[in-house]
Simulated scan of single mutants.
Amino acid sequence: MLLAANGMQNKDIAEQLRIGRVQVSRWRERYVQSGLAGIERDLPHGAPPLKVDTARLVELPPHSKPLAATLEHAQDGRRVERERQHVMRRWHAHGLKPHIVRGFKVSRDPKFVEKLEDIVGLYMSPPEHALVLCCDETSQVQALDRTQPGLPLKKGCAATMTHDYNRNGTTTLFAALNVLDGQVIAQCQQRHRHSEWLKFLRKIDRETPKDKTLHLIADNYATHKHPAVQDWLAKHPRFNMHFTPTSASWLNMIERFFRDITTERLRRGVFTSVPELVDAINEYIAHHSTTPKPFIWTKSARDILQKVIRANRRLSSKQNGTLHFYDEN
């Protein structure tokens, strides 16, 4: 204020005192408005503290839906006029994750309990002198070739891959996982009809000890129950089929192997033809077979059933009718 009284300009004052011109202007404005009192008293710094209704904030994600949107955290944050990071910190403290949605489906199979106990029993107490094989096929495995070559991973930069691709055909992977030792019997075929399924069953018959009874776990796909398949199974009594409940493919441990081969070999792969894709699959399975590791099933049928019952109750409370396919006894 003394320098300004001597006629100095703001820029000269800022340069002499080594502060910003805006700061000089603000202090002069405060002096003009309030005199000495305006520069003697200390004003609050920064933004005022947020006053958050935590109960209201925690209640928003489960019980509200924003207009014209499905992700709730941004809309809800604006609704309560709070900064996004502050809202996210409060939700994190209460264990709420509105940005995550997990898929599920409760089976409506009337024989759910019977099939559940049968399959889990094979996992946890396999019969003697027998092999338990988890079987399935994954169709439409695509041979994708990227439109441009990607760049490799290096320090400070992630590997790159074009978002678009050329389709070079598909194959179907049939696989059977031995629950005991983790060995996999696999075969790639062009289609997944009952004739291809029969061809795969014959492969299993050739590559397993003849003195062993075979218990095959499969889903309810129509090709697995085709009349021609039934006739073949009748002529090969050592094959025993066990079908998972509908909408319960998670009971088949081969799905875990399909996930592994997808994430570890196929998802980022570049294949210019179907034969190249098939070679990559066979190479992965051969490498897997050198040091196989079985998946260990730990959940009992009773534990799974109790979890399904709880899920069924929650669904029943959201619908008009009550869903029934078993009771707690």
Rank of each mutant, 00 (worst) to 15 (best):
L2S: 10
N6M: 14
Q9T: 12
N10F: 05
I13P: 00
Q23L: 03
S25C: 07
V32G: 02
S34Q: 13
G35T: 09
L36V: 07
P44E: 05
H45S: 05
P48F: 01
P49F: 02
K51N: 12
V52N: 08
A55I: 10
E59V: 00
P62D: 02
P66L: 07
A69L: 09
R82C: 14
R89F: 05
W91D: 05
W91T: 02
A93R: 14
G95Q: 10
G95C: 11
V106L: 15
P110T: 03
F112Q: 00
K115H: 04
E117P: 00
D118F: 01
G121M: 04
Y123L: 03
S125C: 13
H129W: 04
H129Q: 14
A130K: 03
C134L: 07
D136K: 07
S139A: 10
R146Q: 04
T147R: 04
P149K: 10
G156E: 10
C157N: 09
H163P: 07
H163D: 06
N168W: 04
T171E: 04
T172Q: 02
L173C: 07
R193A: 11
S195T: 15
I204G: 09
D205S: 11
P209D: 01
T213S: 06
N220R: 13
A222I: 12
K225L: 09
H226W: 09
A228P: 00
A228M: 09
Q230K: 15
D231N: 12
L233S: 03
N240R: 15
M241W: 12
P245Q: 00
S247N: 11
A248Y: 03
W250Q: 10
L251C: 01
F257C: 10
R259P: 04
R259K: 13
R267C: 09
N282T: 10
E283S: 15
Y284Q: 08
I285C: 11
I285T: 09
S289F: 02
K293I: 15
R302K: 11
A311R: 14
A311E: 13
S316F: 02
Q319Y: 11
L323N: 08
